[in-house]
Amino acid sequence: MISRRGFLRFIGGSFLTAVALGAYAAGIEPMLLAHVKRYALTPPHWPDGLKLRVVAFADIHACRPWMTQERIASLVDDANALQPDLILLLGDYIAGMPLVTGPVTPSQWASALSGLKAPLGVLSILGNHDWWSDGFAQRAGAGPIIARKALEKVGIPVLENDVVRLEKDGHGVWIAGLADQLALLPARRGDPCKGLDDLDGTLAKVGDSAPIILLAHEPDIFPTVPWRVSLTLSGHTHGGQVRLFGYSPVVPSRFGNRYAYGHVVENDRNLIVSGGLGFSILPVRFGMRPEILQIDLG
Rank of each mutant, 00 (worst) to 15 (best):
D48K: 14
Y93E: 03
L16H: 07
R139E: 13
L86W: 12
L41Y: 08
H171Y: 07
D85Q: 08
A25R: 03
E218G: 08
C193E: 14
L297I: 07
L75V: 09
D296R: 03
F245Q: 03
K51V: 05
P283H: 11
V250D: 01
S253W: 02
G49K: 00
L178Y: 00
Q138V: 12
A147M: 02
A179Q: 04
I156S: 09
P44Y: 00
S114I: 06
A62R: 00
P103C: 01
L123I: 08
S253R: 04
A142N: 06
T232Y: 01
S114T: 08
L271K: 06
V250H: 07
R285A: 14
A260K: 05
V100D: 07
T202V: 03
L159H: 01
R289Y: 13
G262V: 09
L203D: 02
H129A: 01
F15N: 04
M67I: 12
G135L: 15
D191Y: 14
E29R: 12
H35T: 13
L196Q: 07
G115N: 12
S248M: 10
L21V: 15
G275C: 12
I125P: 04
G287A: 05
G298V: 02
P186T: 09
Q181H: 11
G201V: 00
L126Q: 10
V100P: 00
W174Q: 00
A56T: 11
G276E: 13
T42H: 05
L151C: 05
D59E: 11
P30T: 08
G121N: 10
